[in-house]
Write a protein that binds this DNA or RNA. Structure first.
Lengths: 232, 232
DNA sequence: ACAATGCTGTGATGCTACTCACATTGTAAC
DNA sequence: GTTACAATGTGAGTAGCATCACAGCATTGT
């Protein structure tokens, strides 16, 4: 994942990294919250940040988990809207580089290679979202969960010797439910069913997927490349 | 809607319109289909085109309906993927301007105002998709349908004297179902319930919404601007 | 170590939405 | 107009999920 980011988006990353301002990410703190004035965006250097939308009725919808090398807060670029629409919560401590929004906008307009990278990145973003759409809506809640697990594998999976994939992110059942648009209880039941079948196992809150193919065939996965089929 | 497009995206539109090649859109024909080599994109001059993804099991997921002034096929820009991922079907005859993909890519890199417009457009795209996500996933199938109706009003609604909104697109129940990720029967039942309540009425396959507010409150609409809350 | 708190597991219950089946209505073609 | 076919309407049965309620564990802080 990070390899992909650095290969394809080296200019963008370099620019963001050149930022002098680095801030610590403290667990459970917010990088930004819905409604806050949006003047900057962030490059995650280490740690993990969860981006989600809080609904008026208290429900939460998770969109992304961002790790090292990923950009957060980009949605306010080139819009008139001066406020964040989403909330970014730190789920694993680390550091982030801070970039001024106006500065980046200016750079993007005069630096063709940078422009190209940014456009390429946005295109990918849109394609990712479309595949996710299909998964979350077309195959019921089971499809939504399986898809989320597959995407977690592609984004944060560490291959083990026996072919299993260890997902190196701590997610509560409630968090998974927020990704899938379902309930904690449903996630719990579905995960337990998968455990029974030996498809997955869990240890200290982290999931290992033993049979990724089972998940893929269940949701009629079309084997889109891992840089499309991931947690955005 | 079209007013918005021309105001915000005049450069982009002008470039696309300067294209010498114009093709007719014949009803039920395809502008492109999934898997076809993608070398060009299109500006709809008149008529309407529906963009959707066909799933392996025969189900269809609709993403957009594009009318005059809108750009179709943009997702292949700046990607290595030489093929269309979606299918564009003509649902109302008209004409489209054809633009070479490579040409547009080159233009985009050397023409800053154009670049700016394109990025702005992509940002909007992503934001639209995010709000749609919440609507389709968080409030059940009723939320999905109501959201689709609201978006249709914003994109293709014609205000009537009595405050009602006439949606000027002919959509079968099955098409609406494809937008919502539900079934024809469910759409039928929900629409009939809305008719009973006097919220909507139908005439020759087209819907008139009499009480848009009812739909909005039912899905906890946060009144996002119409250029975000629309059929993409 | 203990209490307090948060997370996970599980049954019971009811609503939501899908499926299947078929009737009715609308529409296009001849 | 008549016929054929497509689209809509509706009932019955069922699967899928949400909800509520509460018990068992695990983690954290003091």
């Amino acid at each position: 994942m990070n390899a992909t980011v650095s290969r394809d988006f080296s200019h963008l990353r370099a620019l963001l990294q050149s930022s002098k301002k680095v801030i610590p990410l403290r667990k459970h703190s917010f990088l930004f919250q819905e409604g806050m004035p949006a003047n900057e965006l962030y490059l995650i250097l280490s740690g993990k940040v969860q981006v989600s939308k809080i609904c008026p009725d208290g429900k939460e919808m998770c969109f992304r988990i961002c790790g090292s090398g990923e950009i957060v807060g980009e949605l306010t670029l080139f819009t008139n809207d001066p406020r964040y629409l989403l909330t970014a919560k730190v789920i694993e401590p680390g550091e982030a580089a801070v970039v001024n929004k106006t500065e980046l906008e200016e750079q993007l307009l005069i630096n063709p290679p940078l422009t190209l990278e940014y456009m390429r990145w946005m295109s990918k973003h849109v394609r990712r979202t479309q595949t996710k759409f299909r998964d979350l809506i077309m195959n019921g809640k089971k499809g939504a969960l399986y898809s989320t697990l597959i995407r977690l594998c592609n984004s944060y999976g560490i291959p083990l010797e026996d072919g299993s994939i260890f997902i190196d992110v701590t997610l509560k059942h409630q968090d998974l439910a927020n990704f899938c648009g379902t309930t904690r209880e449903s996630v719990n039941r579905m995960l337990n069913a998968l455990k029974q079948e030996g498809i997955i196992s869990m240890k200290r809150g982290k999931i290992t997927v033993h049979d990724l193919n089972y998940l893929k065939t269940e949701i009629q996965c079309e084997d889109c490349p891992p840089d499309i089929c991931c947690i955005e």
